[in-house]
């Protein structure tokens, strides 16, 4: 029975270490979180190994809970990542360095945040109704619904009603 738990422990430790390295090394927020999930994988392997060693299913039950928690955590984390991206337009972890204390002139920060993406109009504006009593502008709305275009693409002549 010597090696039964041993191999699980070894692989679990290696995966955990690799996940830790990945978390520290990568700068993309999403990849960082993926590496956290990798660390969890290592932990679950450990648990399964011990469950096998002891011959009962306590370890496996714990793994079920871990799975559940990992799912919840990834959902919330990814929601946060999306919200963050909406604001920052970048997924660079170096973007969030406001708590730095290096106040000497010439102090270098570990990384320069990469430039943010210029803002595109990701979503077209929701259509609105014309005020009561006016003719709804038909053509411009359709034109403005182009998903990959920019707002300024619509031609405007003076006097035309636009609701952009």
């Amino acid at each position: 029975m010597t090696g039964v738990a041993l191999q699980f422990l070894v692989v679990g430790a290696v995966l955990f270490a690799l996940g830790a390295v990945g978390f520290l090394v990568r700068r993309n927020l999403i990849i960082m979180f993926l590496c956290v999930e990798l660390m969890l994988q290592g932990a679950t392997l450990n648990l399964v190994g011990f469950s096998r060693y002891h011959g009962n299913l306590q370890g496996q039950s714990f793994v079920i809970f871990l799975l559940t928690t990992a799912a919840c955590e990834s959902a919330i984390a990814l929601a946060l990542v999306v919200a963050v991206y909406t604001r920052w337009r970048t997924l660079d972890a170096a973007r969030a360095s406001n708590l730095n204390e290096r106040t000497e002139p010439g102090a270098k920060f570990p990384l320069d945040p990469s430039p943010a993406e210029p803002r595109h109009l990701d979503y077209p504006p929701a259509p609105t109704l014309a005020p009561a009593g006016s003719e709804p502008p038909v053509g411009e709305v359709v034109r403005n619904l182009r998903p990959s275009g920019r707002a300024g693409d619509a031609a405007r002549t003076p006097g035309e009603f636009t609701n952009v």
Binding site: L24, A93, L99, N100, E101, R102, F109
Partner: peptide, 19 residues
């Protein structure tokens, strides 16, 4: 000044020190 240099506001550097 020496100790303050550790605080660079960068999440991964903190994580590194934890590890």
């Amino acid at each position: 000044r020496g100790i303050r240099g550790v605080q660079d506001g960068f999440l991964q550097s903190y994580a590194f020190w934890m590890l």
